[in-house]
């Protein structure tokens, strides 16, 4: 078992999830509470990484963050090194790639909060920040949990973007998914089986956590 890759995957997933939450909560609140047709474009843009092939996204990011573009050269001037083939670059790619998995559950959760409660909070003087922190998040906490777990898991299992943008550098960009790929490529099926089982176990644990927290107990009786 490549514990270095395991630790790197966990670190990448944790950092990505934290950044995603900071971005996705206000973005989802804007999509649900905002007015204007341009919000449909914002929502579509936030969903785009879900339907875009990961290798395509990885390629675009590789080009954008590389030294051939002004943006990439700006990054080098700022950080002293290119983002491509670095852990920081992986974080950027993971945040973009996993964005829909954080935004979508939050949009669904916020949208399910009764608008009468939102109106009541606004009438009582709540601005956007207070409205989100005291009403939307507590009432959509299951969606928040789903967003956290989905973002974390999606990042752990990411392959295409990681390979295109980060390559396979031990300790820097080699995640569990890359290790699994290397093991299969080297016909080391026993080790690949262990790595795959670890990824499977993580997924099952996370999904069990979501469903144990979000599933209502029993079937509610319907009104006649």
């Amino acid at each position: 078992m490549d514990w270095q890759a395991f630790a790197l995957s966990l670190r990448l997933a944790a950092v990505t999830t934290a950044i995603l939450l900071a971005i996705a909560v206000p973005l989802a609140a804007l999509i649900v509470l905002g007015r204007g047709r341009w919000l449909a474009a914002v929502e579509a843009l936030a969903t785009l990484p879900m339907v875009l092939p990961p290798t395509v996204l990885g390629f675009f990011l590789l080009v954008l963050l590389g030294p051939r573009t002004a943006f990439g050269r700006g990054i080098v001037a700022l950080l002293g090194h290119p983002l491509a083939f670095s852990f920081d670059g992986l974080v950027v790619g993971s945040v973009i790639y996993s964005l829909p998995f954080a935004v979508q559950p939050l949009v669904a959760g916020f949208a399910s909060v009764d608008t009468a409660l939102v109106d009541a909070a606004r009438l009582l003087g709540a601005g956007p920040v207070r409205l989100v922190s005291t009403i939307l998040i507590p009432l959509a906490r299951r969606s928040l949990l789903a967003a956290v777990v989905m973002s974390f898991l999606h990042t752990i299992g990411e392959f295409g973007v990681v390979l295109m943008l980060g390559g396979d550098i031990p300790g820097a960009t080699r995640t569990l998914s890359i290790v699994l790929y290397d093991q299969v490529e080297g016909f080391n099926y026993a080790a690949a089986g262990h790595t795959a089982l670890l990824l499977l176990g993580l997924s099952i644990f996370a999904l069990a956590l979501i469903y144990s927290r979000t599933r209502s107990h029993g079937v509610a009786p319907r009104d006649a």
């Binding site: 009764d114 009468a116 409660l117 109106d119 009541a120 909070a121 606004r122 009438l123 009582l124 003087g125 709540a126 601005g127 005291t134 009403i135 507590p138 009432l139």
Partner: peptide
């Protein structure tokens, strides 16, 4: 904005915040 107009509104449904106590609702 609604909270800065010195007006308030009550509706047919009380629309109390379900995660807060009655006291916390009033204190909001």
């Amino acid at each position: 904005p609604p909270g800065h107009r010195q007006t308030s509104l009550v509706s047919q449904q009380p629309a109390l915040f379900p995660h807060l106590t009655a006291l916390a609702n009033v204190a909001y």
